[in-house]
Simulated assay, not measured.
Amino acid sequence: MFQVLLFAHLREQVGSEKLAIREKQLTVKEFKELMENQYKLPTQGVMIAINEKYATETDIIAEGDTVALIPPVSGG
């Protein structure tokens, strides 16, 4: 199991700031597919961080990790 932290509109869409994913291991690509299919979260343009380090689609999320979904930020 690993923990997922949600920010901005993603948090509002799910209705929670955290999710617990009961998988032992996923690639970031597989994780994005899970978020899109199970939680209906758009992941295009969303940065993924594993244990506070930005990740690529081939990086592995392992049991005990903390994953953050960071949506694009706009401002003025």
Results as ranks from 00 to 15, higher is better:
residue 18 K to C: 01
residue 5 L to S: 04
residue 76 G to I: 08
residue 64 G to D: 10
residue 2 F to W: 02
residue 66 T to L: 04
residue 66 T to P: 02
residue 40 K to S: 14
residue 63 E to P: 01
residue 38 Q to P: 00
residue 5 L to R: 13
residue 30 E to H: 11
residue 19 L to P: 03
residue 20 A to R: 03
residue 68 A to K: 01
residue 76 G to A: 08
residue 2 F to K: 00
residue 62 A to P: 00
residue 57 E to M: 11
residue 54 Y to N: 05
residue 44 Q to V: 15
residue 41 L to S: 13
residue 47 M to H: 10
residue 71 P to R: 11
residue 34 L to C: 09
residue 6 L to G: 04
residue 67 V to T: 07
residue 8 A to E: 14
residue 46 V to Y: 11
residue 12 E to N: 08
residue 21 I to A: 04
residue 71 P to G: 12
residue 28 V to P: 06
residue 10 L to T: 04
residue 74 S to G: 11
residue 46 V to P: 07
residue 35 M to K: 00
residue 41 L to Y: 12
residue 17 E to R: 15
residue 40 K to R: 15
residue 5 L to D: 02
residue 63 E to H: 03
residue 40 K to P: 03
residue 45 G to T: 13
residue 34 L to T: 05
residue 28 V to H: 06
residue 18 K to Y: 07
residue 66 T to Q: 14
residue 50 I to W: 03
residue 2 F to R: 01
residue 66 T to A: 06
residue 52 E to I: 03
residue 40 K to G: 00
residue 23 E to D: 10
residue 3 Q to G: 00
residue 52 E to M: 07
residue 59 D to R: 00
residue 70 I to E: 00
residue 36 E to M: 15
residue 64 G to K: 12
residue 72 P to M: 07
residue 74 S to Y: 09
residue 6 L to T: 03
residue 55 A to C: 06
residue 26 L to I: 05
residue 43 T to V: 15
residue 34 L to H: 10
residue 4 V to F: 00
residue 51 N to E: 04
residue 6 L to S: 04
residue 27 T to N: 07
residue 32 K to N: 14
residue 54 Y to H: 14
residue 54 Y to C: 01
residue 39 Y to V: 03
residue 50 I to H: 05
residue 42 P to I: 09
residue 12 E to R: 06
residue 2 F to N: 03
residue 45 G to N: 13
residue 63 E to L: 00
residue 76 G to D: 10
residue 5 L to K: 15
residue 10 L to A: 09
residue 33 E to Y: 08
residue 10 L to R: 02
residue 53 K to Q: 15
residue 16 S to H: 01
residue 42 P to W: 00
residue 68 A to H: 02
residue 54 Y to V: 12
residue 17 E to F: 06
residue 65 D to R: 00
residue 28 V to I: 12
residue 32 K to H: 08
residue 34 L to Q: 10
residue 15 G to F: 10
residue 53 K to F: 08
residue 47 M to G: 05
residue 64 G to V: 03
residue 46 V to G: 11
residue 68 A to S: 15
residue 42 P to M: 08
residue 75 G to V: 04
residue 34 L to G: 04
residue 49 A to M: 12
residue 55 A to P: 01
residue 34 L to Y: 09
residue 73 V to A: 10
residue 76 G to T: 09
residue 76 G to K: 07
residue 63 E to W: 02
residue 1 M to V: 05
residue 67 V to P: 01
residue 15 G to R: 10
residue 17 E to I: 00
residue 11 R to C: 12
residue 4 V to H: 01
